[in-house]
Amino acid sequence: MPTVEVSFTALPSHVRTARLIALAVARRAGVDEQFLDEVRLAVGEACSRAVNVHQGTGLDAPIVMSLSDEQDRFSVEVTDRGPLEGAASAPDLDDLDAQALTAEAESDSEPMPDLLPPGFGLAVISGLVEDVAVTSDTTGTSVRMTWPATDVMAPDGR
């Protein structure tokens, strides 16, 4: 049972709100200060990715972010209704050739291409967070990230 569940319209402007909520709940769940920047970035990447998937496929459905405080762990699950891009699993950052990303010169008049390959956000998440699970089926894709948290013994005292 998630501690906090947030459902938001797939708009870039809401991603910041989702980040702030995740950060506040993570703090409350006892996630160590050293992980909080990681939580903020990883949740931002997961939500941006979900928003892009919905906007790219014209889906009206909201993005759902579930935050769970489970004793000594804190989990964030971001779920969309779209397909998983690229490979079936999160791409490995070692496979990304950073030089190749910038190698092709382009003219100014060209419309903005997708500069970073699909799956780049997921690659950042897996490079950042130790415990990540990406699952995808016909109903959508979900990115679940887990961090250690202090075990607060009194559940009603929080």
Binding site: E45, T102, A105, S107, D108, G121, V124
Partner: peptide
């Protein structure tokens, strides 16, 4: 205060443009 992969993409795009 905060930079994500979308921001990185924009910087990479800027680099491509000046390199041209």
């Amino acid at each position: 205060d905060f930079l994500d992969s979308t921001g990185l993409g924009v910087l990479v795009g800027g680099l491509k443009r000046v390199r041209a």
